[in-house]
């Protein structure tokens, strides 16, 4: 009987665990294993040891004797990925401001909450195509509006200097009213009103209350949003590069995830793509642990 009781919950978990094993655990393990192989998907994988990692992270002397990375593109695309992640704090700040505003008892706040959340539920490809139209140098709305006020807009998606900020604007626009705003709203509603009442009695103005009550009380929420955004940031940029820029100009908008896709499905270097994925995983893990170690203290 006792044995039966022990098995029952495991059997309930069986369907979920089977799905987890098929779609997550085994593919992840296979990708890890694959990073030690060379595989073009046509011939059997060939074990190459650490060759993929050496090609990816190693360096060599070029014809002039200068020390250069074996895969300089990887470092460039890692820089691009980190650059685009600068949108994270801006997005978080905008989410917080929106949440604070939409937490006020203003008329139509439910409507505004829905409006700001809309980009999160709309099809990403459709939105990106709209942005492509907006950024168009010939007939895009953004440069058209800028021209009205006497500014000659840049060729957003075709300029090395402007393409990354252009993508960041999309990220901020799409992210500020999304999950971050919802989580901040939930966090704001969890702050006991007595704290504000007490502060008000002590003469604290709105800014003081925000600085000394709202922000500290929202610290766990901020920490959670930050960690998930950083993880997403490292893995992000693929759809924008794929749809808007094809990774250009001159690789300015290629991120690590797009580079992985290219190696796997365009260049047929599946083992190298797996090694890239593993390095990306290590990076995400490292940054998450760092954030956890240094960020947790601030939330407690």
């Amino acid at each position: 009987m006792r044995h039966h009781h022990r098995l029952t919950p495991l059997l309930y978990l069986l369907p979920n665990l089977t799905g987890f094993a098929i779609f997550v655990l085994i593919p992840v393990a296979a990708a890890m294993a694959l990073s030690f192989f060379r595989w073009d998907l046509f011939h059997p994988p060939k074990f190459v040891g650490l060759q993929n990692f050496s090609d990816l992270l190693g360096w060599r002397h070029d014809a002039e004797g200068a020390l250069v990375f074996n895969d300089a593109s990887f470092w460039k695309y890692l820089y691009n990925t980190l650059y685009l992640m600068l949108a994270i704090p801006i997005t978080m700040f905008c989410s917080l401001v929106l949440a604070v505003l939409l937490n006020q008892k203003i008329p139509g706040r439910m409507f505004f909450r829905a409006v700001f959340y809309l980009p999160s539920i709309c099809a990403g490809v459709g939105l990106l195509l709209l942005w492509k139209f907006l950024y168009n140098n010939d007939f895009g709305l953004i440069n058209h509006l800028l021209a009205w006020v006497g500014i000659t807009g840049p060729d957003w998606l075709n300029s090395y200097n402007w393409s990354k900020p252009a993508l960041m604007i999309i990220m901020i626009w799409g992210g500020m009213g999304g999950t971050g705003m919802i989580l901040y709203l939930a966090g704001l509603q969890g702050i006991p009103p007595e704290l504000y009442e007490a502060a008000e009695m002590d003469g604290a103005n709105v800014l003081h209350q925000f600085r000394h009550i709202t922000i500290p009380m929202l610290a766990p929420t901020t920490f959670f949003i930050f960690i998930t955004a950083v993880i997403g940031g490292f893995q992000g940029g693929f759809d924008m590069a794929y749809i808007l820029t094809n990774g250009g100009p001159d690789g300015a908008t290629t991120t690590i995830s797009y580079y992985i896709y290219n190696h796997a499905f365009e260049y047929f270097n599946m083992g190298y793509a797996a090694a890239l994925s593993l390095v990306l995983f290590a990076l995400v893990l490292f940054v998450t642990i760092l954030s956890w170690r240094f960020g947790r203290g601030a939330t407690e």
């Binding site: 075709n158 300029s159 090395y160 250009g248 100009p249 001159d250 690789g251 290219n262 260049y267 270097n269």
Partner: peptide
């Protein structure tokens, strides 16, 4: 495809004037 990529990237620098 892989070999063509550096060429495309380099062409971009000419088109951009850099």
């Amino acid at each position: 495809t892989e070999l063509f990529r550096p060429f495309v990237d380099a062409c971009d620098t000419v088109w951009m004037g850099t």
